[in-house]
Structure formats: structure tokens, C-alpha cells
Design a protein around this nucleic acid. Structure first.
Lengths: 245, 245, 245, 245
DNA sequence: TATGAATGAGTCTTCATTCAT
DNA sequence: CATGAATGAAGACTCATTCAT
């Protein structure tokens, strides 16, 4: 009657939507994407029809669940970026992501490019996460906290791997130790390797993002389309050299 | 058309068993455990009944496929143990295991304790693998090639994680670099990171069939939304008592 | 936002009722009786509950829609009866009825006795239509404008058939020509044709759970094909006794 | 073992396919296209899965049922064409078609262009039926047994209308009388019309199929693509005059 | 024996109907 | 009183598993 906030949101609808979302999150975490919708509905204490009113397909429900988690993750990453030193922000963010992964169907399934679950609509959020990771990585590298040969795709793969590790190691503390061990490999400390040659001393640095025209280093911003050129002049020059088509 | 005479029968059966096993291996690798048995049969060029003659359940087929892979792996590990220096044997074996993981359904799904697929019969083979890992680990630690605080379960979890990494990183060479980076963390070196969170919450059960205001019994209809109040009067009364929010 | 004062209420309700009725008419015409009630409500710009306030079931809504159309039709027929020569009135009325039928769900579906839609309440209006047709028919026959052997039921069937014709012939003018051709057959003139067939057959019930050969009790599993024999021996015996076919 | 006829057809499969087809035919006839597949399966005495083995979707089942009926119809029409006088063949064929229509879901629903049920695959059979109708019509017209202004589309619409008539008139004999009455309107007898102008005297003849290039009369064959030109010469000439595109 | 047909429990999804707001 | 959220029975379809041929 008096609530003017929100458009057409009724309190019961809001409550049920939240319950479904939460129940679905739990169910996916415990039993994977294959959990029947009926079970989710029962767990949420609502009818199957209610689930369908809020999420027109099972797919949409999956998207909503992970979109929320990804959104929270991105927000937390941006907060870290604003408040912490670059290296702390980077490692803290990775740990945040990995921390969400103690379950069967995880953010990482969504994050890695070849997930078994198709997820068209999430593309935008996932892209934002990837971009944020790239920005944090670059900053940490410039601060000297991360080895220069690491690239953004490496970070994604490492995250996915660490998530799998924590899921596989039932002792939580031990899982964290392993993650720390793995992530520490990213730092430029790099001491003695007993046998076999290590990756650390055999590879040159990872190419940093550079202007495709003049090669100048590019600054990645946390939002917006990632730059290809260092400025309007180079963009125009590149345009002139492209075939007419 | 007609079975030729007596003698050859057994070899027929053996050949079919092998074809099914190989078709199942490919199918699981390409499409995961959810691939229908009918597809596997078709791919093997046999009838569904033939699959069931050799493997009484789908579960048994999965077991057979991975039992074979695990067996080969164990054999290779034992060979390494016999022929190489302890540390080389250890790291080489890990790399072997991880190398089998570039597919949708992997040895690691079977190997890790919380695999999505239950696997009673495999326990023996998996246990043998775990034991072999433990032995190799201990030898490498005694040789000073692996940090002493690492335990056998850590190794399993690391393997699973590395398998996920290589699956996530589409550039194969880059994937290998990441794996080496991670495994190098096991060698004598050292520091530390942050914490993660998780998203969950729980809800109470659905209300019993009595008016929440006056307690009168409510009539439940087979269709439509279940009532909370016995009528408009009680509903209004309950509404008035609710906080404004 | 807030209902203005007291007086206007009834006119609101009347307006909504009319909107629902009109929306339902359009929806039925375009998409048939299977159109969901929610779509009708949306088209009418009201909530589903409002539809139910005015029409307690979907059935009632269908009745109301066609009752209105039938009422208009009957009124027009009575006007014709009063103002035209008997034969003109008769043929004019038939043409009126058929003219309403250029859609998916038609008056004729309601009018014919074996309509797909059950319609108890409409009986009165339909009966009135039938009676009017009978009166007009009799008058036209007495005036010598219609063959004497035609009965009221024939007229109903012809009307239904002509409605189907016009719906099937997309060229409207051509449809009208066909209708006229058909109705002209009612005027004094005359000859005859052949027979049709139909495709049917029936089957006995499913076998009881005992071996068909030796009568032993059979164990039914919850899945898989139910057994007919207790084992391979009986199956083979039964097979031998079967005719070669 | 010895049956060599047919490829991969097992007797039980053949039997079940026939039972499903027959059960579906009955069910559609009695209760329309909306009958649940489960009911059809139960009526056929088989499981739902068996229906799906033979017909991958409900749509496919509908197609199969009516494809069979249409096929029989076309065959009977071709037999009539070969054995009877043109006019008899024409009217006999129409009566055959109409005779199949004493039910809820009929060949005519399939035959008329705007049926509510989509039917892509049937297009070929329906086209063949239409063509056969056109051939028979032309022959009957040339024999002087059918009025010249009638066209093939008129015949289709009349058939649909007559089918609706017989379905509406429960007394079968009376239904046949009405059909005869209607079809007789196609004969060139055409006597007295009391009031109103009749279609019979107001319209010119229907255009006969003619070569699009030279206007010569075209002979329609019962099979193959209907001709547009009277021969290769006219086809070539028409081709030359077409824009290059 | 190998083949592939038959089975039915279980999944996703729709929609007429009822009630909270 | 109007709105639209919640409900659950029912329908189309899949697939592991078992048996007739």
C-alpha cells in the first residue's frame, strides 16, 4: 500500500524468489547441476510452479544462482582493488574465488570457458570477472608481487585448479595450505629446484598488453572495453592500413 | 549370419568386449559420464544387449574403463619406481596421471574420494594407486626432493587440481607450464595468503494446515495456493498486527 | 492507486467484464480454445484473478463469449423473420451464422451437438437458436422455397459444414460462392453417390505374471521388459510350438 | 532366422508398431489430437517408451497415422481413376475422402491448408492428394460431369465442409444424403432458383490449366510435378524472357 | 550368442485454479 | 475489489535395464 520502492515486487514473491535461489544454490553445491528441479522446489518449501514463475527454465535458474555469486565476487574484487595494495588485492581476490568452490557445481565451472553447462547470458558477468582479474594481475605485476611471465588465462586456469584442489581435500585447513602453496608459485621468489628443470628458469616473460600499432604499454581499466590501441592516433593509423573489405 | 562352428566363440566375445571398452572410453572422454549407453553401443557397433552381457550395469562399465586406465597408470608408476631416482619417479608419475586428464570424465574423478560417481569395486585399484603414490612420496621426501610436511592426501588433491588446470587451459603447452609451476611448489621453498567465504542459508518447514490467526482447521484444496487464514477477517487482523516494514 | 470513493465501483466491474469478454473472443478466434487464460487476462489488461471473479471457470468464460455471439445471432434472426419473406429470412439467417465462422473457434463448434467443448449452460441459448432455425425452415418450406424432405437437424449440419468450407477456402469470395452453391441445393431440385470406409481394430489386455509355458510365478522387476517365460528353456519350448508364420 | 524379407524388421516390433498406429488412429478419432500419448500407449497395450521407439515425437505419430490414411486414400483414388468413368471416379473419390471423416481428428484437418496441426512431412502426400483431385476434376469436367467453373481449391474446401457435415449429423444415412445434396451442386444440372440470385448463373467458367507461355490446354498426370508449359519449346521461351536475376 | 525391442520411473515444463497482498 | 503469486496434477520425452527373437 505504501511501499513505493521497487516495481511490482510483492513481499511474498520476493521472499520466495530468495528461498528458491538459496535452495538452488545449496542443491547445486551438494549434488551438482543434475539435481531435479522438484527437489529444489521441495527444499525451498514451494511448489514447482513457483520455481517456474521466477525462472522460466532450469537453465535460467542456474544462471541466476551463479550470476548472483559472480556478481558478489566481482563486487568484492572491486572493493579489494580500491582498498588494498595491488598484490594483496590480487591474491585476496583469487582466494575469494577459490573459497566459493567447496562444492559440486562451482563458480569455476561457470568461469572456465569450456564448462559442460552452456551459459549464454552469463557471458557478460564472466567477462567482467575475467577483466577484473586481468586488471588486478597487471597491477600486481607492476608492483612486483607477481612473476611477469604469468598471463590472465593462466590465472583463470590456476583458479579453476585450486578450486578443484580444495574440493578434493576434505580437510579444509589442509586445502587452504595447498592453495597457498600453489599461489605462492606466482610470486617472484623462485628458489632452488632439485631435479628436472623448472618452469621458473626456462621461459621468458609473458607478453604485456601493448598497443597493436605502436607497441606502447596499455593501461587496463576495470570497466569498459579493453583497449587495443594507445590512443586515437594509432587507432586511425591501424584503420587506414586495414584492407577496404 | 550364422555362427560358424564352435571354437571361435570366445575370441568373438573378447573382441566385442574390447570394442565396447574402447568406445566407452572415447564417449566418456568426449561427453562425460552422462552419455547414454545406447550411444556407446552404437559407437562400438554392437547392440545394447551385448554391452549388458559384458558389463551388468552402466556403473560396471565405467569401472571397467577406468580400471583399465588406472591399471596402466599403476604399471607405469611401478616401472618408474624401479628405474628412476626417487624424486624423478615421484614427479614423473604425477605428470603421467595429470596427462590422462585432458577430457570430460577423467581418472581424477575416479581417484578423488568425493567423486560424483560412486565406485565400490574400484576401491582396490584406487587404493593401490594411492599406496603407490604414498610410497613414491616418502621415497622422494627421504631423498630431499619434496618438502617434508606434504602428506599423501595432499598429493591426491594436488593431482586433481592440476588435472582441472590442464583441462581449463586450452593451450596445452601453457597448461603444462602451470602444472610444473604448481608441482615445483612441492620442492623445498615457502610463504602465505587470505580467507574465503561461502553463500548459503536455510529455511524452516512449510506451515501446518491451521489458521495462523485463530487456529481453526483449514480446508486444503487439491489445487490453488494453500490457505494461511480461515478467512478474510483473520487475514485482515493478522495484517494489522504485522510490523509496518 | 486508491479507489476514489464509493459510487463508481459497479461501472469498473462492468468495464472489466466487457474487456475480458472481448479479449477472450479475440483470443479464441485467433488461437482456438486452447489459449491459456493468462494470455486472455494479459490481453484484457487485467489480472488472472479478475477473470476468475467474473467467470468462475474457463468453461464459464467460453460459454459467456459464445452466449453473447449466439444471442446476437438469434436477435438478428428474429429481426429477419419479422421483416423479410420466409425464404429470404431462412437463407439470410443461415448466411449470417456461417459468416461468423471465419476463425479457429466458432459458433458452430458450440452449435453442433458433438462439439469438442462440453457446454451445459449454453443449452438454453443453443436450443433457442435451433428452434428459431426450425421455425424459419418450416416457413420457408411452406412458401415453397426449400425442399420438403429437409429437417432441422439437416440444417444444423449444413451450417456446420458451410462454416468449415469458408474456413478452408482462404479466398473469401470463393468461399461465399461455395456456400451459395451448397445452400442452393436446398431449393427444389435433385440425384445420388457412393460409400466410405474407416480404419479401426482392437486388442486384448496385457498377459498376467505367470510363465506362459509352465505356469510358474514370474518375478516382476520395477524396470525392464516384463517376462513372459520363467527362463530360456520355456521360451525355447514355446518357440518350437509356435506356427512357423 | 529364415525371414529375409524386410530389413531389420522383427515380428514383435512390426506387431507393436501396427498396434500403436491403430490405437493412435482410434484415439485421435475419438478424442482429437489432444489425447495424451500415455493413453495411446495404454490402449495399444504397450509402454510409453515403445511408442517413442517407433515415433520419436507425438508429431511423428500424428504424421504416421494420417500418412497411412492419406496413402490408402490416394491408392483408392488411383484405382478408381483406372477403373471407372471419369465422373464416377471423381464423385466416388470425394465420397471416399468424406467417408473417412466420421471422427474428431480427420484427414480433412490434415488436408486443408490452415490446419491447426503443423505437418511438414506430410506435405508430399497431401500434395499428391491435391494433384489427384485436380486430375480427376479435370477429367470429370471434360466428360461433362462437373460444372466448368469449379476449381481444385473449391473441391478441397467442399470436401472439408462435407466432412464437417457428416461429423455433425449423427444419423449416418442422413449425413450421406446431405453430402449427396451438396456434391450434386457440382453437376451441371442447375435448375430453378426461387429467390435471390444463385451462384450458378452469375459467374463465368473457372480457368482450366493452360501453358503459361502459349495458352494451350495442359494434361495433368496423376503423378510427378504438375506442368507449367506445354513442352520444352515453351519452357525455353519463357526462360529467355525471365529477368537474368 | 548377439541384437535391438520393450519397459516405466523420473525429468522438465504448462496451466487452470486459488489465495495473499 | 483488482492483482498477480503460488500450487500441483498432468503431459511430452529420456534412458538404464531386461527380455524376445
Amino acid at each position: 500500500m505504501t511501499t513505493v520502492i521497487g516495481a511490482g515486487d510483492r513481499s511474498d514473491a520476493r521472499r520466495n524468489r530468495a528461498r528458491v535461489l538459496s535452495a538452488a544454490g545449496e542443491a547445486f553445491a551438494e549434488r551438482g547441476f543434475d539435481v531435479p528441479l522438484g527437489d529444489i522446489a521441495r527444499r525451498a518449501g514451494v511448489g514447482a510452479g513457483t520455481v517456474y514463475r521466477h525462472f522460466p527454465t532450469k537453465h535460467a535458474l542456474v544462471e541466476a544462482v551463479f550470476s548472483q555469486q559472480l556478481g558478489e565476487l566481482v563486487a568484492s574484487g572491486e572493493r579489494r582493488m580500491a582498498r588494498s595494495a595491488p598484490t594483496d588485492a590480487f591474491f585476496g581476490f583469487l582466494t575469494d574465488i577459490i573459497g566459493t568452490a567447496r562444492s559440486r557445481a562451482t563458480v569455476c565451472d561457470i568461469m572456465s570457458a569450456d564448462a559442460s553447462w552452456p551459459r549464454p547470458v552469463l557471458t557478460a558477468t564472466v567477462a567482467r570477472l575475467h577483466q577484473l582479474l586481468a586488471v588486478l594481475l597487471q597491477a600486481a605485476q607492476q608492483a612486483g608481487g607477481v612473476r611477469p611471465e604469468i598471463g590472465p588465462d593462466d590465472v583463470v586456469a590456476l583458479t579453476v585448479g585450486c578450486a578443484a584442489m580444495t574440493a578434493a581435500r576434505h580437510d579444509h585447513a589442509a586445502g587452504l595450505r595447498l592453495v597457498r602453496l600453489t599461489l605462492d608459485g606466482l610470486r617472484p621468489s623462485a628458489p632452488g629446484v632439485t631435479e628436472g628443470r623448472s618452469f621458473r628458469d626456462t621461459r621468458g616473460p609473458y607478453p604485456a598488453p601493448a598497443c597493436e600499432q605502436c607497441g606502447a604499454a596499455l593501461t587496463l581499466r576495470p570497466t569498459g572495453r579493453p583497449p587495443r590501441y594507445c590512443g586515437a592516433a594509432c587507432r586511425q593509423r591501424a584503420h587506414r592500413r586495414r584492407p577496404a573489405s
